[in-house]
């Protein structure tokens, strides 16, 4: 079957070799194109590596301050309720500096969609520890490995949000073609929840950061499968 880049992807992306963001972005581009909602979509960018989607994907975009997507999207949906409003966020933006805004959007059940790229580090600034950094993981601000005693426990969005009255919560990854297909279904489902007015949807995507993990891209994929997924299980947790 013929397969080529969706027409919404306008140029080469700026991500590092083997970056998971670019894999996700293409999947989202495919979904937007297949649902024929590119012209009905307005995205809200985080600041961090994830924001570079705006240079390769032809979709209208607002870039609020780092992490404030939950607040910005609430306003965007109020001003243009007929549009699809979604954010491609990073784990630092959505879960650390912007956790208040993310959680407020979820508790209000705003009819918007969050795609959170979880690569367990602050990638753009050089791989510092994030709330999502795994136990034992080395980062440039946890040079002997993260420990619960010294740095606190690792953040898990499912534990945080599973009892909220939101429309959709899923965790997926991009490590192989089968997972990519599942991720694509989750993206579509999240946007369909918004279309149907069901409310807040969040899809967390475990993505590799070979650059900051110090691994080759295939090794980074194996790291997700072997070390992240057992701790942060994949699946759909809320679907209503």
């Amino acid at each position: 079957m013929a397969k080529s880049a969706p027409s919404i992807m306008k140029c080469e992306n700026m991500f590092c070799a083997g970056c998971g963001h670019s894999l996700f972005d293409r999947l989202l581009g495919e979904v937007l194109t297949e649902m024929d909602i590119v012209g009905e979509s307005i995205s809200c960018s985080d600041i961090g590596c994830n924001h570079m989607y705006q240079y390769s994907m032809a979709v209208d975009t607002v870039v609020p301050p780092h992490g404030k997507m939950g607040a910005a999207m609430a306003a965007m949906k109020k001003v243009r309720p007929d549009k699809y409003i979604f954010s491609i966020a990073g784990d630092g933006g959505a879960y650390a500096i912007g956790l208040g805004e993310t959680l407020s959007a979820a508790t209000r059940n705003d009819n918007v969609t969050f795609f959170v790229m979880n690569n367990t580090v602050y990638a753009m600034t050089g791989g510092q520890m994030a709330p999502t950094t795994m136990p034992g993981q080395y980062s440039s601000s946890s040079i002997k490995g993260r420990t619960a005693e010294e740095h606190g426990r690792t953040f898990d969005v499912v534990k945080l949000m599973q009892n909220l009255e939101i429309a959709y919560l899923a965790r997926c990854t991009v490590t192989n073609a089968a997972e990519m297909a599942k991720t694509k279904r989750c993206i579509k489902k999240a946007l369909e929840k918004q279309r149907d007015g069901k409310g807040f949807s969040l899809v967390e995507v475990l993505v590799p950061c070979p650059t900051n993990w110090g691994l080759t891209p295939p090794e980074a994929m194996r790291h997700i499968e072997n070390d992240l997924v057992p701790y942060l299980p994949l699946g759909e947790y809320i679907d209503r």
Binding site: K68, A71, A75, M76, K78, V79, R80, E101
Partner: peptide, 26 residues
């Protein structure tokens, strides 16, 4: 029009940023 009581001043100011970006007088 639309009214949102933000969860903080920071959220509110960024709501206004986004609303203005979409064309509203905010």
């Amino acid at each position: 029009g639309s009214f949102i009581q933000g969860e903080s001043e920071i959220a509110s100011v960024n709501m206004v940023f986004a609303a203005t970006a979409l064309g509203a007088r905010a």
